[in-house]
């Protein structure tokens, strides 16, 4: 059998094995590839960071997630929460999905392990699960009064009695609404919260949805976007560089890769806070492999086509 015939008819299971090896090896032995940051991620980081230490500002996080989106979205959850806890930024969390509520609780617990001083209802407030049918009334109601729209936290305590609500009333006190979503990201907040109240909106999405949402960045309806594992890795990197070291955000420093690489040692970072960056090592190797497969497949195709043309001429 000719080489061209062989590569056109190769059993796809061999490709799966090669791909699995290409992913497993960098996970076991990380390559430490540099993480370049992009403007949509830097903008979001900068915007959140501006609320550091402010009593009357909070970040509003919506967890529209299910277990099938965990590999891409969960590192984002951890990175954003870690940023907020490190920089003393108040956080509200909510989910309109039963499974999203469980993921939200898991993310809060996992990040909080590293921050024993961070207290629920003082530094963050988990609104818990709310019915999908209530998402529009709640989103609009927050524009008037969060405590009236949401009423209670996940433990059933009334919001107006919680210390975190002292100087926070409505969207005027929300620094940004972030929807980390595997479904229709950001539309709820773009359509209602931004259109009616002018609140800043950002999204974290699976890579599949990322390209569809760039038009909203262009128009300014989104101030930031975390796209897939890459977006999560970028945000992890910014948190590691600035927030962990207590350095205020600087655009110039954020773009300076060599300066950023001097700020921390990746091997010393807890695995849960570098999951996306390690994953991106594997992603990079797998992408190179896929590009090679595409090139080999196309070379085989064109050689075969040329041979058929020659036969036809003869």
């Amino acid at each position: 059998m000719k080489f061209t015939d062989y590569i056109q008819k190769i059993d796809r299971r061999y490709i799966f094995i090669v791909l699995a090896i290409a992913v497993i090896v960098p996970l076991l032995f990380p390559l430490g590839l540099p993480t370049f940051t992009t403007p949509p991620v830097r903008n979001l980081y900068k915007h959140i960071d501006e609320a550091a230490g402010e009593d009357d500002k909070a970040v509003f996080m919506d967890f529209a997630q299910s277990p099938s989106t965990l590999p891409e979205l969960y590192p984002m959850d951890l990175a954003v929460l870690r940023h907020c806890f490190l920089r003393d930024i108040k956080v509200f969390t909510i989910s309109y999905y039963p499974q999203g509520a469980a993921i939200m609780q898991m993310a809060l617990s996992e990040v909080k392990e590293a921050f024993p001083d961070v207290r629920p209802d003082y530094d963050y407030c988990n609104f818990g699960y709310r019915s999908w049918a209530l998402r529009v009334p709640i989103t609009l109601g927050i524009g008037d009064n969060i405590a009236e729209a949401v009423e209670t936290n996940s433990a059933g305590r009334r919001l107006e009695n919680l210390p975190i609500m002292g100087k926070i009333k409505n969207y005027d006190n929300i620094q940004v609404c972030i929807e980390i979503s595997g479904a229709s990201p950001g539309y709820l907040y773009i359509n209602y919260a931004r259109a009616r109240y002018g609140v800043d909106v950002a999204i974290g999405v699976t890579a599949v949805s990322a390209a569809d949402n760039y038009p909203y960045l262009q128009t300014g309806q989104l101030i930031g976007l975390l796209g897939g594992l890459k977006g999560a890795a970028e945000y992890e990197e910014l948190v590691e560089t600035f927030a962990v070291n207590g350095i205020p955000y600087s655009e110039k420093k954020a773009q300076n890769l060599s300066w950023r690489q001097q700020q921390f040692e990746l091997s010393e970072v807890p695995y849960k806070f570098k999951r996306a960056r390690i994953g991106m090592d594997a992603q990079a190797v797998a992408h190179v492999l896929i590009i090679l497969f595409i090139i080999i497949g196309n070379v085989g195709y064109f050689i075969e086509k040329r041979q058929e043309k020659k036969k036809f001429i003869k």
Binding site: L27, V208, G279, A282
Partner: peptide, 19 residues
């Protein structure tokens, strides 16, 4: 662009499970 992102998404799922 969409397809490239889709490849990245599918690989991310594999990476997540392997992690």
């Amino acid at each position: 662009a969409s397809f490239g992102y889709t490849v990245m998404a599918r690989l991310s799922l594999l990476i997540g499970r392997l992690q």
